[in-house]
């Protein structure tokens, strides 16, 4: 009984501080409050069940976010996103896209609402990479663990996502009709 208490206590100590971040990320992925709540609950259930398989001293945050993302990918919304995915040639590009200052000014000076709308319009495959990097402040290696892709792909997705955001905010084009996971 003491061991069970210790195990649960350890899980709670590690997992609950991530609760708000996981919910925020789930909402961005699912774009629906009810689905996001289901995702978070399912994530915690799976994590509880699988806690014994978690390797101590490894990255618990990446582990939890990976569970959440994998749960999303098997949800109805996630499956739909996966079925419509088309590989973007830039997705495998490892060289970061360079940063054009005039466009970036549009992003830096955008209102919070305009930026949120642009993030909404970003294909999920790029949105998740940008959010994990800029909002969750994860390292590239950590994001690679969450997304189960190489670090180079993480870098290119972040760069591509930021570029799309800049273009959307600069009014150059809308990527809402784009194909990558949207």
């Amino acid at each position: 009984m003491k061991a069970e208490t210790a195990s649960y206590g350890e899980f709670e100590r590690l997992a609950m501080p991530l609760f708000d971040s996981l919910y925020n990320f789930a909402r961005w992925l699912a774009e629906d409050a009810t689905e996001a709540e289901d995702l978070v609950q399912e994530t915690f259930k799976k994590a509880l069940h699988g806690f014994a398989s978690f390797v101590p001293d490894s990255d618990f945050r990446a582990w939890m976010f990976r569970i959440l993302r994998n749960t999303f990918l098997t949800s109805r919304t996630g499956l739909r996103a996966r079925l419509t995915v088309e590989l973007d040639p830039e997705d495998e590009e490892t060289t970061p896209v360079t940063w054009e200052t005039p466009e970036s000014l549009a992003l830096a000076s955008a209102t919070r609402e305009a930026l949120q709308a642009a993030l909404d319009g970003l294909p999920v495959v790029y949105r998740e990479a940008v959010l994990l990097c800029d909002v969750e402040e994860m390292k590239y290696q950590e994001i690679a663990q969450v997304l189960s892709v190489p670090v180079g792909t993480v870098m290119s997705r972040i760069a591509r996502g930021r570029k799309l955001l800049r273009q959307m905010l600069a009014g150059e084009r809308s990527v809402r009709s784009g194909s990558a996971w949207k």
Partner: peptide, 17 residues
Amino acid sequence: ALMESKMAVRRAGNRYA
């Protein structure tokens, strides 16, 4: 410009409670 953009995304990305 990129630092400011990153900050803007961070503020906008913390959207849902």
